[in-house]
Write a protein that binds this DNA or RNA. Structure first.
Lengths: 401, 401
DNA sequence: CTATAATTAAATCAACTTGATTTTCTAAAG
DNA sequence: CTTTAGAAAATCAAGTTGATTTAATTATAG
């Protein structure tokens, strides 16, 4: 009999680990907090919090701030995240560029390395990425024991025949290549690989506009278009790690042909590639997002036409996402330059009627998040930090098998 | 300073509660299991499992089966869910029918009551629902202490101005009406309200084709069309309880006008209402799904035409769901009669290329689940059982505030 | 009779809780 | 200005809870 891998039990050890994460997360989302207020927010006893805070301070993850006077009673000592409590490496691979960064626990970039590539194959890219990582460690002279891991962002989807490696928005030759395992082998550091959109979503969650949100969707406008799904306090990756690949949903049945074989796919209208194509660039494979920013600034009429044409498909994508997932907010970002994203966002209203049209809202339906070429590397660097410090169901369960 | 409601900490008490749920869930998904095998599956020690199983047997939730001989060692005593360990009331309200059922822990229907209604308002429906509940309790003479709660299913979306109460697929007058609170007040029993699709999804998860799945989407074809989202082992309801309302995503831009104000909405093509409209029934508000089953059996040409026209929008809906959520499987069901669902499913291939086209699959991309008029009541009855026995993150966290 | 596997019993352990106490401040009273 | 009461934070020490560990017991196949 085949037994389903059951959800597993928990014990004190897991509980402890969870509670430590809860303390960190509570401080991250709220800023510096005293032990007493952490206790109130987490429903743990003040004694427990005291113990945990002491341990985390010992470990260098938290640091005390100036005592808060002015109120009655013993003055509170607020604790905040110690930026130097840990470091993370973020890598990002795309058609033309490989970027690596080091960030500290506060998400601040401490080092950055960039290499040009040209639609690299795994054989070309893997050594390069490993080299970038060791470069970063060497030049930033960071304490390896405080390195939480490597986060890597690259375009999805993963492992889908006829989609992963097909067309100008995909990277060729990566179908079924075990990126994380290989990079882990080369560097000896734990590696987390996600698509651009997911990485960017985590970046927004830890340090950006989504800091306090439980459920949001990050629409990543890059070479193609993808969504990072953060639902009910955790990243939703899908059963085969491909959730959010909405670039290939059909927004215009019978519309522009797409390399995936369908017609009228979303990313044929809303993506860097779509813009390049619409502008009839001679060499769209080597065009730069900067060009679009220039054209926007100049008020180029062809680019304006693209903007106008892209708005309705984007509106429809937002509609689909809102209807399917009812998120608190949709965040727009990606490799598309910020001014262009803002121009698109500015033309979105009136949005379609959806479940997000609902009455009282705490946040706007659409907000603009981080955009530009470092969006996804910084998000990538946030991945290990998130996975090491976020309270999540997994952590509470004993590892099984 | 406004503090975000933090994720809260945990302690032994929560852990215990979680572990009990884990034991129940493990037995539910795998069938009868000995203490030793539960221990292996859950990663808990056999002593812990022994204690928990003893308690659960004491409480009547588990019962021992015949000892398993034939292997070496002391023979194992398998335990299974005791159907009489608890009962649940399911209610379902729709345009023409209010149904109530009692099920036991195994999901078996123990009693059923049905009342005709005609697009009822809250003032009409609430006393009726309360009466149905007390009828069920009285006639089935069930032990009130073993009643886990009332689950209720009704069409969504909830609380969306211009959508909740508009059009022939919605129930009028329910915008912002606090159904659960009111029914709880009238009956004195805990009430969980979900839309049809969500209820059906939970039913499939506990007792049906999705029993072993971690992530799946239930496409509920009813008067309208909605999706129940079960992602990463838990129900995803959305930030305003409206996730899965995909009946109003646009599948044909500029297509048939919809009462929500948009054009080409999915449920204008795939739903009972869409079929009735296509058949030009004189009184679509009072048509019955049975008619469609008859027409299908007869091979009615107009109905065949509807089937053919509905397939592509349905295919597109599946495409959107697969691309956005990468589920293990999409389950088709709803009020639409089973033969009709099967006819639709039979015409779906070839499905669009999506992330679900991936290589090795454990389950088919689309499976047919429970369909017919009792689908959502039975699912509704599953809701309290699920919420009382499923291991979930919430349970592990201390109630805050 | 022996190896094997399931189950049980008693003792132990780790982490959170409880309630009393101490510390350190503000605000009001004298 | 000094004193005192009141308030909130932090700490201390003992207590509680539930999982784990270790060892013993039981039942069966070979």
């Amino acid at each position: 009999m085949i037994l389903k891998k059951a959800i597993s039990g928990t014990n004190l050890e897991q509980a402890k680990s969870h509670n430590r994460r809860v303390v960190i997360e509570t401080i991250r989302t709220n800023g510096a907090l005293s032990r007493a207020s952490i206790a109130r927010l987490t429903a743990l006893s003040s004694q427990t919090i005291s113990n945990i805070v002491e341990e985390l301070e010992e470990a260098g993850l938290l640091r005390p701030e100036a005592t808060l006077k002015g109120a009655r009673g013993q003055p509170a000592v607020p604790y905040s995240i110690n930026p130097d409590g840990g470091y993370s490496i973020g890598l990002q691979l795309d058609h033309q560029l490989a970027v690596g960064v080091v960030t500290d626990l506060s998400g601040t970039m401490r080092a950055r390395v960039e290499r040009n590539v040209d639609r690299p194959t795994p054989a070309e890219a893997m050594p390069l990425l490993a080299a970038i990582s060791s470069d970063l460690i060497a030049t930033s002279r960071l304490d390896r024991t405080k390195l939480l891991g490597i986060g890597m962002a690259m375009p999805g989807p993963f492992g889908v025949e006829g989609m992963t490696s097909v067309g100008p928005t995909a990277l060729p030759g990566w179908h079924d290549f075990p990126v994380a395992e290989e990079l882990e082998r080369l560097t000896g550091i734990a590696v987390i690989v996600e698509n651009d959109a997911t990485a960017a979503a985590i970046g927004e969650r830890l340090y950006g506009v989504a800091r306090k949100l439980d459920s949001f969707v990050y629409l990543f406008i890059g070479t193609g278009l993808g969504a990072g799904l953060f639902l009910d306090g955790h990243l939703y990756k899908g059963s085969r790690h491909n959730a959010g690949e909405i670039g290939h949903i059909i927004v215009k049945p019978g519309g522009l042909p797409c390399d995936c074989g369908k017609r009228g796919c979303l990313e044929r209208y809303v993506s860097l590639r779509a813009a390049y194509d619409r502008l009839h660039l001679p060499d769209p494979d080597h065009a730069s997002p900067d060009l679009l920013e220039e054209l926007l600034a100049k008020g180029d009429s062809r680019f304006e036409a693209w903007l106008d044409e892209a708005v309705e498909p984007l509106r429809q994508a937002i509609d689909v996402v809102e209807m399917a997932l009812d998120p608190e907010t949709v965040v727009l970002g990606g490799f598309m330059p910020l001014p262009v994203i803002e121009a698109l966002a500015g033309r979105l209203e009136p949005l379609h009627l959806s479940v997000s049209s609902a009455t009282a809202r705490a946040t706007p339906r659409v907000v603009v998040g981080a955009a530009g070429k470092d969006t996804s590397v910084l998000g990538a660097a946030a991945l290990p930090i998130f996975s090491e410090t976020n309270p999540q169901f997994d952590v509470l369960q004993k590892p099984v098998g």
